[in-house]
Amino acid sequence: LFNRYIDDVFMTWNKSENELKKIIENANTWHPNIKLEYKISKSLPFLDVLLTNINGTLSASVYHKPAAEPYVVPFISDHPRHVFENIVQTSRRRAVKYSSTFQLFNDERRYIKSTFLYNGYPSSFIDKTFRKFFSDYISSRSFLPFLHNEAQFIQMRIALSGQPSRQQSEVEMRIATLTTDNEHLIEESDKKSKKSPFKRIRNQTNFKINL
């Protein structure tokens, strides 16, 4: 397994740790100004995901830096109401997508709620936003704003993972726009090419008549 984002790399290695260190140390001799820093462990963060090797199976959860304070936009700040809802839903969406098990998701759910309570968000507002987020996956009779079982969690995780990101949507929109513009240019070109032979024939006819 190998993943890279700009200058951050995550990989798994099935051979000995010493062999991997030799490869990295050799790579550090290639250029005097480029040095690779590395950490080898059974549990490592990659960007904002914490990956853990549990008996050969990778487990994923949301990564929080140890020195990071539980701070988000305070509820008393002068923002429209939908901004606070989006902040809560973004945290919840990340928890669903990054948590590999239902238990890890519930741990992150509790962390999210305590963080927002710490920043002045009313408990009723948090629960309402949670319930709105889970409306397609929990029973309409349920008053509790969370998923009930592993099956519901997996269903929601698959659904969210299949949704394109905002950047992907913007790229697709640009491609669609360019395609439409190109089709329009092709149509205009075809129209001109169809008109031009008639003009040439007409000019040739006039020339012959004048003779």
Rank of each mutant, 00 (worst) to 15 (best):
S139I: 06
Y71V: 15
E188R: 04
D190Y: 07
E69Q: 09
T90Q: 10
L144C: 13
P122S: 15
A60R: 07
S196E: 04
S77V: 02
Q89A: 14
D181F: 00
K194Q: 14
S114W: 03
F146E: 11
Y71T: 02
A60H: 09
T180H: 14
K192W: 07
E69K: 08
S99R: 05
T101H: 07
L178R: 04
A95D: 12
T115Q: 01
S169H: 04
D190S: 03
S114A: 11
P66V: 01
P197S: 14
A176E: 15
S169K: 03
R109K: 05
P164L: 12
K195N: 07
R92K: 03
N149Q: 12
S123R: 06
D127M: 05
I126N: 12
Y111H: 02
I112Q: 06
L117N: 01
M173W: 14
G162Q: 15
R174S: 07
S99Q: 11
R141I: 09
F153S: 10
L104Q: 11
Q103H: 08
Y63G: 08
R92P: 00
A95H: 08
P122G: 12
Q152A: 14
Q167D: 03
F75R: 06
K191Q: 00
A95W: 09
F134G: 01
E183V: 00
G120H: 11
I154K: 08
P197C: 15
S169D: 06
K191P: 01
Y137M: 07
I76F: 06
V88D: 04
V73S: 09
S189M: 10
N182W: 09
N182L: 15
A60K: 09
P74D: 14
E69N: 03
K199N: 04
R157P: 00
E150M: 03
S99N: 12
S99G: 07
H148P: 03
P66S: 10
Q152Y: 10
K128P: 01
K132G: 12
I154T: 00
T129M: 14
F146W: 05
R93Y: 02
D107A: 03
H64R: 08
V73M: 01
R166M: 00
E85V: 06
S161F: 10
S135C: 01
L144N: 07
K128C: 08
F116A: 06
Q167G: 02
M156E: 07
I87R: 12
I76C: 02
K128D: 10
S100A: 09
F130C: 05
G162M: 13
S140G: 08
Q155E: 11
Q152K: 06
D78C: 11
A67C: 03
I175G: 09
F133R: 11
Y121P: 05
T115E: 04
S123Q: 09
K199F: 08
R131C: 12
F153W: 12
F198K: 05
T177H: 03
Y137T: 03
D190K: 04
F153V: 11
I87F: 04
E170A: 14
G162N: 13
Y121L: 11
Q89R: 10
T115M: 00
F102A: 08
F133Q: 11
Y111S: 06
L117V: 02
Y71K: 13
P70Y: 06
K128T: 12
Q103F: 13
H82V: 14
Y98I: 02
F105D: 10
S91T: 01
K191I: 06
S165E: 07
E188D: 12
A67H: 04
Q89E: 15
Q168I: 00
R141S: 00
D78T: 05
P164N: 00
M156Q: 12
